[in-house]
Design a protein around this nucleic acid. Sequence first.
DNA 1: CCCTGATTCGC
DNA 2: GCGAATCAGG
Length: 207
Amino acid sequence: MGPLFQWENAMSWTDERVELLKKMWGEGQSASQIAKELGGVTRNAVIGKVHRLGLSNRAGATAGADAKPKAKAEPKPKAAPPKPAAAPAAEAAPKPKPAPEPKPVASTPAVLPARKQIIPAGQPLPPQPSANEISPEALARVSEIEKKAKKLTLMELTERTCKWPVGDPATDDFWFCGLPVQQGKPYCEAHVGVAFQPMSARRDRRR
DNA sequence: CCCTGATTCGC
DNA sequence: GCGAATCAGG
């Protein structure tokens, strides 16, 4: 018995796994994401497989014409093998780069510098979500993630932890989200959603 | 620091 | 064929 999904005894590159790999890679997913999804493999493994499959170039998969003007990685002369450098010299392909990731273009300079006058130093700053109508869905998401929040203290925050404050700083029911931040952002994905509003859902409610 | 893919080479 | 180690760039 063991009706659970088998790891094929060795996580080999089965047809299905390869298909998923191709699918995700085609969708622009990163190797690490694919590896995580597949499980049992590292991103290196994924990248290696991707190359072996010959779909290294996501944007320039021009079959039959592999352009590799890059010949790096050779600071380790272990044997100094001969390198028949091919000279493709065919760089005229514009980079379409589908970019499946929606970029709401947050022009907002973060929410941090509110009143630098009262901020001693090294204090993250409390955004304080309010006076704003956030999407109900976003709020719901936030409420949900707050349950999973790590509830870190100010000192426990790092560059990679969500700095979204929850609760009242004057009470002991105050903590920071602490979930993994979205790269480049000070908050986790959910909180980024409410922190950076692309300006919408703004109903001019004139009483 | 984190991330990304690219490449090499021993297995 | 596989993927860890390494490299290189963002």
